[in-house]
């Protein structure tokens, strides 16, 4: 019973956060909306007894990613008005069609049995969520996991390369003390 109440409250919070994120005129409120959604998703993980995933969700998405968002929004100035004119033709009709299609896929998936989860997680061992995740990650899925690690490293290196090197060679770096 308590689980249902918590789920309903945070389901509405997640949806409300998503709407605020889309509709808010001020980018800071958009960030707060996204933050609410991320946090609500972490609560869903707790309800599913996936405590480890919930903690990671909060640390990475709610903590690190959203803090960086906020930081960037504050740095570039929140008072500047955003250009909200739409440049892509027929953006709204296409968006509506895609949204309806997505909803149809969700409904279709929801009626299938496979989204209800595999039977092995029916009675999760509360003291073993970290161990269970670690076993899967470093046992069964080691190679895909390492592949993901390489992908992320390449992405990080690419970001640095794009920021550091212009078309004419390396850009000078300011070390924060006025020297380059």
């Amino acid at each position: 019973m308590a689980e249902v109440v918590v789920f309903v409250v945070f389901a509405f919070a997640a949806l409300a956060g998503a709407f605020v994120m889309l509709l808010a005129r001020n980018p800071v409120y958009s960030a707060i909306g996204l933050l609410t959604t991320m946090f609500s998703i972490a609560v869903f993980y707790v309800l599913l007894d996936a405590h480890f995933v919930a903690a990671i969700q909060v640390i990475i998405y709610t903590g690190a990613v959203m803090t960086l968002f906020m930081f960037v929004i504050m740095m570039i100035g929140v008072d500047r008005d955003e250009d909200t004119s739409e440049r892509i033709p027929y953006q709204r009709p296409i968006g509506i069609v895609l949204a309806v299609g997505f909803a149809a896929v969700i409904v279709a998936a929801g009626s299938g049995a496979w989204v209800t989860g595999s039977a092995s997680f029916a009675t999760p061992d509360l003291n073993g969520t970290i161990e269970a995740v670690a076993d899967e990650l470093f046992g069964t899925w080691t190679i895909p996991f390492l592949g993901t690690v390489f992908l992320l490293t390449i992405a990080a290196l690419g970001t640095i390369a794009l920021a550091r090197y212009g078309p004419t060679g390396p850009r000078p770096i300011d070390d924060g003390e006025g020297r380059t």
């Binding site: 480890f52 903690a55 990671i56 640390i59 709610t62 690190a64 803090t67 969520t129």
Partner: peptide, 12 residues
């Protein structure tokens, strides 16, 4: 069970 991660999450 995830106490340390919980602390890091809340402090973030």
């Amino acid at each position: 069970n995830v106490g340390v991660l919980y602390i890091l999450a809340i402090s973030s």
